[in-house]
C-alpha cells in the first residue's frame, strides 16, 4: 500500500517534468518508461474508482507537496493523454525520443489496421468538427442561453469540482484558475446548474461556488464588475443570496460618483478603473433590474427611493445620484405603461 501511495505521489512530478526543459536528456527508453507510467496510472484509476477510501487516500497523496495546480484522483485516469499531449507540445524533446513518441501515440500498432488505444484521431476530428459546425445563428442570445464554449468550460469546471468534492472544498481548485475568465465560467456554471433543476446533487457545487464568491468582498466585486448586468439579474433571480449583495455593491459604486457641474454629468471621483463604475454603466445595470422579475425590480426601486430620501428627497437633477437614476430608469417604465394603455 505504501509503495502504491509513493508511486502516485510521483505523478505531479512526472507531469511537471514532461512540460519542462528537463526532457532534453530523454532517450527513447526513457520516453517509453514515462508512457508506461501513464498507462499504469490509468490502470490504477480504473481499479480503485469504485473504492471511496482508497480514492481519497490517493487523491490526498496527489496534492501533497507539489507547486502548481493541485491534482485530483481523476487525473490518474487521464494520465496517458495529459502526458502524451504535454510531451507533443514540448519542443525540448530530442528527435529520437520524439520519433518514438509519435510512433507510440499516433501510429497503429504494427500488424493492426486499427489505431492504438490513445484516441488522438478522434480529438483531431472533433476539433475539425468544431471549426466546421457553424455557431447557432445570429439571433440575440437570451440570458438563459450560454454559448457552447463557455458552457463547456463550465461543465469541465463542474466535473472537476465534483471529482474533488469529497476530498476538499472548491477553494483550492478555484483559486488556481486564471483571471477574469474564471468569473465568466463561474457564472455559466451557476446558470447551467439553476437551469438544469438538478436537485440536491447538482445544487451542491453551485452552493459551494456561490459561498466561495460571497466569502470575499474583492472577489464578489470583481465578479459583479466583469459580468454584464442582464446576466447578474438572471443569476440574482435564481440565487436570492446573490441579489442583495449585488444591489449593495451597485449602491456603493453609485455613492462614489460626483456631479461635474461644468459638464453637467455624473463622473467618477478619481481615475476610473479600480473599484468603480461609470454613470452610464450604473444606469444600464439598474435598467436591467427594471426588466427583471418583480421582486428584484421592487427591491431595486425601494433601495433607490430609500437612498433618495436619505439624500434629502430632492426632485432636481444634479443633487443626488439616486434622484437622477430614478428619473432615468422610471421614464422608460412610464412610457411603456402609456403605450400599453393606449
Amino acid at each position: 500500500m505504501e509503495t502504491l501511495l509513493w508511486q502516485v505521489e510521483q505523478l505531479p512530478g512526472l507531469l511537471a517534468v514532461s512540460r519542462s526543459e528537463q526532457v532534453r536528456d530523454w532517450d527513447p527508453p526513457t520516453l517509453d518508461r514515462a508512457l508506461q507510467w501513464g498507462r499504469y496510472f490509468q490502470h490504477l484509476h480504473g481499479r480503485f474508482r469504485a473504492q471511496p477510501r482508497l480514492r481519497a487516500a490517493l487523491g490526498q497523496r496527489l496534492r501533497r507537496g507539489q507547486p502548481g495546480p493541485p491534482l485530483g484522483f481523476g487525473h490518474l485516469g487521464r494520465c496517458p493523454e495529459l502526458l502524451g499531449l504535454a510531451l507533443l507540445g514540448n519542443r525540448a524533446l530530442p528527435p529520437a525520443a520524439c520519433h518514438r513518441l509519435l510512433r507510440s501515440l499516433l501510429l497503429p500498432p504494427s500488424g493492426q489496421a486499427t489505431p492504438g488505444p490513445c484516441s488522438l484521431g478522434l480529438l483531431a476530428r472533433r476539433r475539425a468538427a468544431v471549426q466546421l459546425l457553424p455557431p447557432p445563428s445570429s439571433a440575440p442570445t437570451r440570458p438563459g442561453e450560454l454559448e457552447p464554449q463557455l458552457r463547456t468550460e463550465a461543465q469541465l469546471l463542474l466535473s472537476r469540482l465534483q471529482e474533488d468534492e469529497e476530498e476538499q472544498g472548491p477553494a483550492s481548485v478555484l483559486e488556481q484558475l486564471p483571471g477574469p475568465r474564471v468569473y465568466r465560467v463561474l457564472a455559466a456554471l451557476l446558470l447551467e446548474q439553476a437551469g438544469d433543476d438538478a436537485g440536491r446533487e447538482g445544487a451542491r457545487p453551485a452552493a459551494a461556488v456561490l459561498s466561495w464568491l460571497l466569502g470575499d468582498p474583492g472577489r464578489l466585486s470583481d465578479f459583479c464588475r466583469l459580468l454584464p448586468g442582464s446576466l447578474l439579474v438572471a443569476l440574482s433571480a435564481r440565487y436570492p443570496q446573490l441579489g442583495t449583495p449585488y444591489l449593495h455593491l451597485l449602491t456603493s459604486w453609485g455613492s462614489r460618483l460626483r456631479y461635474d457641474p461644468l459638464r453637467g454629468q455624473w463622473a467618477s471621483s478619481r481615475c476610473p478603473g479600480e473599484d468603480e463604475l461609470s454613470w452610464e454603466e450604473l444606469q444600464e445595470r439598474f435598467s436591467c433590474f427594471m426588466r427583471g422579475p418583480a421582486p428584484l425590480r421592487e427591491a431595486a426601486l425601494a433601495s433607490l427611493k430609500n437612498l433618495k430620501t436619505q439624500d434629502g428627497d430632492f426632485e432636481v437633477c444634479g443633487l443626488s445620484v439616486w434622484t437622477d437614476l430614478l428619473l432615468e430608469i422610471e421614464a422608460p417604465l412610464e412610457r411603456e405603461d402609456w403605450t400599453l394603455e393606449s
Partner: peptide
C-alpha cells in the same frame, strides 16, 4: 480557454469532446 483548461488539469481531448456535444445540442 487553453490556459483555463490546463489549469483545471484537463486536456484539449476533454475539452473538444464536450464542446462538440454542446455545439450539436445547441
Amino acid at each position: 480557454t487553453g490556459t483555463f483548461i490546463s489549469a483545471l488539469g484537463y486536456t484539449s481531448a476533454d475539452y473538444y469532446s464536450k464542446l462538440v456535444k454542446n455545439i450539436v445540442s445547441s
